[in-house]
Write a protein that binds this DNA or RNA. Sequence first.
DNA 1: CGGTACTTTGACCAAATTCAATCACTGTGG
DNA 2: CCACAGTGATTGAATTTGGTCAAAGTACCG
Lengths: 231, 231
Amino acid sequence: MDAGFLLLPEFTPAPLRTDISRRRRPATRMPRPAVKVHHLAPREYLFVEGDPSNDVHEVASGAVLVVRTLPDGRRQIVDVVGPGRLFGLTASDRHRCSAVASTDAVVCRLDRDVAARHPLIADRLGRAALVEIDRLRDLALALGRKSALERVAGFLLSLVGEPTSTSAEIHLPVTRAELADHLGLTLETVSRTTSRLKRDGLVVEDRGDRFVIADCRRLAEIAAGRGAAAA
Amino acid sequence: MDAGFLLLPEFTPAPLRTDISRRRRPATRMPRPAVKVHHLAPREYLFVEGDPSNDVHEVASGAVLVVRTLPDGRRQIVDVVGPGRLFGLTASDRHRCSAVASTDAVVCRLDRDVAARHPLIADRLGRAALVEIDRLRDLALALGRKSALERVAGFLLSLVGEPTSTSAEIHLPVTRAELADHLGLTLETVSRTTSRLKRDGLVVEDRGDRFVIADCRRLAEIAAGRGAAAA
DNA sequence: CGGTACTTTGACCAAATTCAATCACTGTGG
DNA sequence: CCACAGTGATTGAATTTGGTCAAAGTACCG
């Protein structure tokens, strides 16, 4: 596990990666704040709703789901956090979400106040909060106004690193059920939708959690609601 | 217009109010950053998607809608901003949302970098960002997992100031269409839902934009998905 | 009084959910 | 090595929630 190297590095507008391809280090030397490293098995919880929100977290490897739950069990995954991204931000002194690993994962935990006193980290924290806002607005747009096809297309695209190539290989770090809980759908609808994408030749699947997007541009058109058959 | 007094005061976890009931001032004296005051008519835009995001805004009076739009015109209102709240936060150097007044409104505009250098305001900005994250997560939960009835009930409750009394009077600062665009519904569904709430005696309506919530507790149960007839 | 903008209501429709098998893959034990 | 759970994914049929289309209804304003 190479988690120890990822000590709250400079912010990366990181795409979701399940492997760590490079390491970054702060531009200046500061006293290292104490970071606790956690290893999580799939479905293992890091914190749950109601826990004190004294610390912030960073994913070193794997993926962590941030989940908001209704009393009757319905749940909305508000974030799928991949390596290099911070999570656990809230204005409240208690978490209003839970955090679960969706794969084997390593996360770094850092005391919130310590982080706030460390100028470099504090800056990164502020930036991460703003990025989170942008991300959540996109999610709201998807949940409120997009069709199942558009939502799924958008999510698959979000797994692609650079928005470049016309084709890309991605790894789904979540099950269909989790995808459904993230996209406000049922797992059956998600399954039908991915099947349709395959049937239409937009993606090729190998082994359930591994996809090849045939044409990112087309998929992006669909995700943006500009696709021919948006429904 | 008493907007001049509201010079980015201390953060208030303010409920949506369309009248200014009190003023606050910073705890310490700092050189006043230059604030520009804007008066907006209903449906007047303050900024649109793509505009440079060089400044942050605060609503002094009225209400402002922050809107994310799809190329084909579908839109998601990601925030309904009432007096005392900041808006216009983003990680990007260009706005990815538009901001429109839904009523006559007064907003204060402040340069972002100036704000960042002003410790008190910077602090408030950071806090506001975290509050925004919590708010957007709630919205995502509503859009992704709640029924029309639950969404409308939740929105009406969000208009109530203190979460105290068993009954409360509220003012809707938005049209049915705007409410629909905020809750991911159509205006017809919103209308049907408010009608149902009236029929069931949960709210009483006078004059379209003025409601009396009969029993906040019951409405909260419904909004949380615990209500008897959640559908 | 007529016009405009917004809201309500109704009838019908469709996208997505629900319920229910079935299928595919993995790992285990005989 | 193969049968068999067990987990997750897919597919199908029926249902439902909310959307679409259309027609009134209501309030406000010149």
